[in-house]
């Protein structure tokens, strides 16, 4: 491979790969998906440099491509949601027949565990792991809402899901994320 080309590629990767990867890593459930998205993004940009508007920052262009790829990735999980109950169903019953918190799933008072700070390295690691344990679509709606500040209507439109499905996904995401954190961090 021509050395010049390789040097240019290396420059791109060193300059942009971490930022793109970090962004994807926060928004998908596993590292391999994040790596694939970054690779696809950079390859697409590299192959289509003729379409790049050089008056704009390259980083912004790369991020625009990555965001499109992320949405495509989410949409794949959303496709056929109607026929699949696994994304919508609870694997454990947080609520009883009367729709009150089920015994064993009562939210605990975290303030009794003052030793468990919510801003340490280990806490963030567990929070990320808990988020990755959500179902793909639950994690997607949660990230779009709380990392990207999109509202429910935009998210439904982007994913092609009904608002009813959206609220169920959001409900499950929050209940499970909170419970996972409580079990694996606060009360451990």
């Amino acid at each position: 491979m021509p050395e010049q080309l390789r040097a240019h590629a290396a420059q791109w990767v060193h300059e942009y790969a971490d930022a793109l990867y970090g962004y994807a890593w926060q928004r998908v459930r596993n590292e391999d998906t994040a790596k694939d998205l970054v690779q696809e993004t950079m390859l697409a940009a590299w192959r289509n440099m003729d379409r790049y508007d050089a008056t704009q920052p390259l980083k912004g262009w790369l991020f625009a491509i990555l965001k499109n790829k992320l949405i495509d990735h989410y949409r794949k999980s959303a496709a056929g949601l109607a026929g699949r109950t696994d994304q919508l169903a609870d694997e454990v019953g947080f609520f009883d027949e009367a729709d009150h918190w089920a015994g064993g799933f009562y939210p605990q008072d975290w303030s009794t565990r003052a030793d468990k700070q919510l801003n340490t390295r280990e806490f963030y690691k567990i929070l990320h792991a808990c988020k990755n344990r959500l179902k793909e679509l639950q994690a997607a709606v949660f990230s779009m809402k709380y990392l990207d500040d999109m509202d429910s209507e935009e998210i439904c439109r982007e994913l092609g899901i009904s608002s009813n499905n959206y609220w169920v996904l959001m409900h499950r995401a929050k209940v499970q994320l909170r419970a996972c954190l409580e079990k694996n961090w606060v009360m451990r």
Binding site: E31, L118, F123, Y124, L127, F142, L181
Partner: peptide, 16 residues
């Protein structure tokens, strides 16, 4: 839930 939503934004991103 509000605490953890605030925290989710602070999770330091990993590098490639």
């Amino acid at each position: 839930t509000s605490q953890l939503i605030r925290s989710v934004r602070q999770v330091p991103p990993d590098t490639m």
